[in-house]
Simulated assay, not measured.
Amino acid sequence: MKPWKLLTIVLLAGALAACVTGQRRVSEPTASIQQLSVGADGNWSVDLRLQNYSSIPMRFESIRFAVSVDGVSAGTLEDATTLTIGPESADILSLRLAPSAEGRLHAADALAAGRSLNYRIDGSIRAAPDDRNSARDYTVRRDSTLNPVPGLPGVMR
C-alpha cells in the first residue's frame, strides 16, 4: 500500500473516532420573544423561544424575566417549567402577561402605527444538563425588535 493512502486511512479513522467520542459541551442558554399577541382584553400572550446551545440535552426548570418595551417596564415573565430541549435546539414556551398600563399603551401604539416595537428581557434561566440533578442560573439580557405581522391583527414577531 502506498504511504499516502495509508496516511489518508489513518487520518479518516482518527476523525471518525473523534466524532464518536465527542466532547460534552455545556453552553449558556438564551431566550428571545418570538411572538407577542395582544388580546382583546389588553393582556399579552408571549411565545418565548428558549435556545439550548449545548451539545447535550438541557433541562429547563424555570425562567424569570423583567420585560420592557420602548424603554418602559411592561411586567415580569415567570414560569416554573420542566422542559427538556435537545442538543443545539430550541423550543417555545407560551406565557401570559398582564402588562403595565405604559407597556400596554406602547404595544397598542406600535400596532396602530404599523411600526416596530423595541423590547428587552432581563433575567435568568435555571437549567441543567438532563443527566444531572444540580441546576444553575444563567443570566440573560436580550434587546431586540418585534414587528407587526401583516394580516394578523394584534400580532408582532
Rank of each mutant, 00 (worst) to 15 (best):
S45N: 12
V46W: 02
D47K: 15
D47A: 15
L48E: 11
L48F: 10
L48W: 03
R49S: 07
L50W: 12
Q51N: 08
N52M: 10
N52R: 10
Y53V: 01
S54D: 07
S55T: 15
S55C: 12
I56E: 04
I56K: 00
I56A: 02
R59T: 10
R59D: 09
F60E: 01
E61W: 01
E61L: 11
S62K: 13
I63F: 01
I63P: 02
I63T: 12
I63G: 01
I63W: 03
R64D: 05
R64Q: 14
R64M: 08
A66Q: 12
A66C: 00
A66G: 03
V67E: 00
V67G: 01
S68G: 09
S68Q: 11
S68K: 06
V69D: 01
V69S: 00
D70P: 02
G71A: 04
G71E: 07
G71K: 12
G71T: 13
V72I: 11
V72T: 15
V72L: 13
S73C: 02
S73G: 05
S73P: 05
G75M: 08
T76E: 11
L77K: 06
E78D: 10
E78W: 05
E78R: 11
E78N: 13
D79T: 02
D79R: 14
A80L: 08
A80R: 14
A80G: 07
T81E: 07
T81I: 15
T81P: 08
T82G: 13
T84Q: 05
T84L: 04
T84I: 14
T84W: 01
I85F: 01
G86E: 00
G86C: 02
G86M: 11
P87C: 02
P87N: 03
E88D: 10
E88S: 10
E88K: 14
S89G: 01
S89N: 14
A90E: 11
D91S: 15
D91R: 14
D91C: 02
D91Q: 13
I92V: 09
I92H: 05
I92F: 14
L93N: 12
L93Y: 07
L93F: 11
S94M: 09
S94K: 09
S94V: 14
L95W: 00
L95E: 04
R96Q: 11
R96C: 00
L97P: 06
A98M: 05
P99T: 14
P99A: 09
S100D: 12
A101R: 12
A101G: 01
E102V: 01
E102S: 05
E102I: 02
R104L: 13
R104H: 09
R104D: 13
L105P: 00
L105R: 12
H106A: 15
H106Q: 14
A107C: 09
A107Q: 14
A107S: 10
A108L: 15
A108K: 07
A108S: 14
D109F: 10
A110R: 06
A110S: 15
L111G: 01
G114W: 06
G114E: 04
R115Y: 03
S116W: 00
S116E: 07
S116F: 03
